[in-house]
């Protein structure tokens, strides 16, 4: 394992300190407990939005803190949910009197720790609503599992909920719009190589020199199947099929297409993927009206990518287009 780190135990606090120093115009960071809030938090009268989860998925979530998106991000240890205390502290730090929305990826650890924090915040008089993101179609959604995992669709939920809060929606409305995005967004990913958790020092899984994992999770969790490497276009088709069939997406739909890099894949490859994905959607009569390509929800240095499709309507499109000013997503100001 070769990494640009000092003591593996200090990866998260050193990175968060660096993030705070690099983006002092946008955020403030708390070192203990660890969380990141927008510089001008709390914004009086605005619904606060908090997300978080294990580290190693950067820019998610710290890179999305700022006007028009998150009010706070709570990074846990690498691939491990934060405990309730930093979540509680962040929640209080961004409560401007209009309540706080927790955007939680659907992993048992994240769910339980955010739940506890929400209870504690409520006990302290902060109104909290939570939404669970579960866009990963690689995992069957059924009563008999912990449900689908939350992956790159989270970025779209955070952006759109952030815009709703920014225009002055109340807590109930912001939560509803977030739920609406969650209901209409689906994702699936592929890994070409594993990731290495710094304190583990070992690859989280192994793939042969000609193998890829279809349906990979963002912590290196196993997916649907392990197959031989195929041309990019064939891989795209494998991911898009289950995504489009799930809701389903149909001819005439307008969608946002996100091609998300897992951290170690060069941009040329992401655009080759985008090209094919756009082609498939066009063939199906689905209109791509908004796009996003890049590393947004990563899995450390994993090579691979995920495809996310969000069904848009006029309101969601307007909220997507609204100004956002964060380290990793920025337009309109």
């Amino acid at each position: 394992m070769k990494k640009l780190v000092n003591d593996p135990k200090n990866v998260v606090n050193e990175a968060v300190a660096g993030f705070g120093a690099a983006h002092a115009d946008l955020v403030r960071v708390s070192a203990d407990p660890i969380f990141i809030v927008r510089k001008d938090a709390p914004v009086a009268g605005k619904v606060g939005i908090v997300s978080g989860g294990g580290s190693g998925h950067e820019p998610m979530h710290g890179g999305f803190v700022g006007p028009g998106m998150l009010d706070a991000a709570v990074p846990g240890p690498v691939f491990t949910s934060p405990t309730p205390d930093p979540i509680l502290a962040a929640t209080k730090a961004v409560d401007g009197g209009a309540g706080v929305l927790h955007i939680v990826k659907n992993y048992t650890g994240d769910v339980l720790n955010f739940e506890t924090a929400a209870d504690l915040a409520a006990a302290d008089g902060v109104e909290v609503r939570s939404v669970l993101v579960n866009d990963d179609v690689a995992v069957k959604d059924s009563l008999y599992t912990a449900g689908r995992r939350g992956v790159a669709g989270t970025v779209l939920v955070e952006k759109i909920a952030g815009a709703a809060a920014d225009r002055g929606d109340d807590l109930e409305s912001v939560a509803l719009v977030a739920e609406r995005v969650i209901g209409q967004v689906r994702s699936m990913g592929v890994a070409l190589t594993p990731c290495v958790v710094p304190h583990a020092g070992q690859p989280s899984f192994t793939l042969a020199e000609d193998e890829i994992e279809i349906g990979i999770g963002i912590h290196g969790e196993p997916g649907r199947e392990r197959i031989k490497l195929e041309p990019a276009d064939a891989i795209v088709d494998r991911l898009l099929g289950p995504i489009l069939d799930d809701i389903p997406f149909v001819a005439g739909d307008k969608v946002l297409l996100l091609v998300n890099g897992m951290g170690g894949t060069p941009q040329v490859e992401l655009y080759i993927v985008f090209r094919r994905a756009a082609e498939v959607l066009a063939e199906r009569g689905i209109e791509v009206t908004r796009t996003l390509v890049g590393n947004f929800t990563t899995s450390l240095e994993m090579q691979g990518m995920s495809i996310t499709v969000l069904k848009l309507d006029d309101e969601l499109t307007t909220l997507w287009d609204a100004p956002v000013q964060t380290a990793a997503l920025r337009w309109g100001r």
Binding site: G76, P77, T80, S81, P82, T83, P84, T108, G109, L112, N113, E115, T116
Partner: peptide
């Protein structure tokens, strides 16, 4: 101090 599922 734990996080994850087992902590809560």
């Amino acid at each position: 101090s734990v996080g994850g599922a087992s902590g809560p």
